[in-house]
Design a protein around this nucleic acid. Sequence first.
DNA 1: TCAATAATTGGAATTATTCTAAATAAGAAC
DNA 2: GTTCTTATTTAGAATAATTCCAATTATTGA
Lengths: 153, 153
Amino acid sequence: MTRLGKPMNLVANAKFERELGERLATSGFRFTSQRRHVYDVLLQKLDHPTADDVFMRAKRQMPEISHATVYNCLAALVQCGLVRQVQLQRGATRFCPNMEEHCHYYCDTCGAVFDVTMPAEAPAMASPKGFQVDHYDIAVHGVCASCAGKRKR
Amino acid sequence: MTRLGKPMNLVANAKFERELGERLATSGFRFTSQRRHVYDVLLQKLDHPTADDVFMRAKRQMPEISHATVYNCLAALVQCGLVRQVQLQRGATRFCPNMEEHCHYYCDTCGAVFDVTMPAEAPAMASPKGFQVDHYDIAVHGVCASCAGKRKR
DNA sequence: TCAATAATTGGAATTATTCTAAATAAGAAC
DNA sequence: GTTCTTATTTAGAATAATTCCAATTATTGA
């Protein structure tokens, strides 16, 4: 879809690559070219793609990569803590390499997703007795500006 | 699974049935026995069942009901604003007839879901420009007391 | 009561994901 | 550097979740 600039910018920068190697290693995963590439694909366009989107994008540079591998890579990245999995609607899971605390504004009309950094304020909520919190997933559903505009006319 | 008492308590009470009729009508849906029954099934056990769970439970009283109808009924109930759809993990969507503002504590180990009423405090977050908020979906992932206990031993 | 059409049914089709077995490649040990 | 062990990749089959379809049935308004 989107045309890339000419000299492609594989692996945004060394920092991310080193981070990837370390994280994979400490989680007991091997460093493979497929995992690097899948991570790279996620970093290149932060639009919360589905596994299948990632598959299609990954194939452009690595035509032999398989569907199963993309799933495997994504699962590894999630386990390493480099990627978040986002469940916004019925259907395909989306992936997000932004690991800052943020919530997702989701347009129920066109499916667009907007990251919004969270207010530092720790959400003071009474957990069920004994529940050990791992992380919060906050989604805000609604209609994005562009879709709201179209709807009126 | 769970055996019901003898004189079964179909449609918890008239209030819910009337509410259902009204909501369906104002949303342009017809009132059918299947929709009543599906709503009833949801009200009888507030454990956030999947569509397939609902299907299996519904069949106990209405053996001829079809899979497609359960999906259709659930969609109608969601559109009416009588049921919330909850997306907690990859895989099947869950359904929740509790329409109070609440968030879901989800045990990633056993899949249990706990409703927790939300603090009245309106989540003051800067929306993306022009975004019209419809509703919030807040999930808290972690490990429930029971699973946390088992893990230690 | 009848007509119009929404809803239901069962099954096929589609979509998203996982599984499988054989081939390959990463990393440790030598 | 070579070898060994085993994780990973691959293609395709299998499964799970949901939607679609055409024929039948039921609801609602006239």
